[in-house]
Design a protein around this nucleic acid. Structure first.
Length: 218
DNA sequence: CTCCCGATAT
DNA sequence: ATATCAGGAG
């Protein structure tokens, strides 16, 4: 199957079968989204959502977050993955936004990645979700699902996967396709035990085809 | 490349 | 017991 036909099939499937794609991180503004995404590294959204209400109550904006210290913030995120790194990064991030960006969270990838704790994936999420810029954030789900269903061809790095996805997905669909891939990965195309019997993409899925070949006949 | 690093599913 | 979770820094 040609690569363009593959993309068309997958995007049409998501368009018709995926419910309204919304991020499951809870947030009410750009500041809260940035904090939530920074906390979500190697952690489930569900667990992040358990911790953010207390954080947003105690630190309602960049200024209050920039004025706190490690010992005050750490207890609020100690049950998240990598709490030490994330506590330090959150405070340093808020201080840099105040000092170098006039207190406003920047809205370009190049500026966002200068913030401590903010990498390319987080910067792509912020600019895509908040400003609808045609950027594709490649997280663990997007990377895995894209490889399995053949949207990315031999991409060994997230950057290579990002470039291929950007090249083939229409600009106006990129930010929603990002959510489609995440939700598909989270609820159907699971990392360890994918629910192929509930997936409508098996006919184009390279991973599924391989499973059929190697399956021991019963 | 390694390290960070708690909670949950399998 | 081990794999995985909206990754990033050194």
């Amino acid at each position: 199957m040609r690569i363009n036909d593959r993309y068309t099939f997958v995007l049409n499937y998501f368009q018709e079968h995926m419910p309204v794609a919304e991020t499951e991180l809870h947030y009410e503004n750009t500041y809260q989204l940035l904090v939530a995404v920074m906390l979500s590294a190697q952690c489930t959204d569900k667990r992040v959502n358990l911790t953010t209400p207390a954080i947003f109550h105690k630190y309602p904006d960049i200024v209050t977050l920039s004025e706190t210290d490690f010992d005050a913030l750490f207890p609020l995120i100690k049950s998240i993955s990598y709490p030490n790194s994330k506590a330090r990064h959150l405070i340093s991030m808020a201080q840099m936004v105040r000092n170098d960006f006039d207190g406003e969270i920047p809205m370009t990838v190049d500026e966002l990645v200068k913030l401590p704790g903010v990498g390319r994936k987080t910067a792509n999420v912020i600019t895509s979700v908040v400003d609808h810029q045609p950027n594709m954030a490649v997280d663990t789900h997007v990377f895995r699902v894209s490889a399995r269903i053949g949207l990315t061809n031999k991409a060994t790095t997230v950057l290579a996967a990002e470039k291929q996805l950007i090249k083939h997905i229409p600009k106006e669909l990129i930010h929603i396709a990002h959510h489609w891939l995440i939700l598909h990965g989270r609820y159907t195309c699971l990392a360890r035990t994918p629910k192929c019997e509930k997936c409508g993409l098996t006919e184009v899925c390279k991973y599924y085809q391989t499973l059929q070949k190697t399956a021991t006949p019963s």
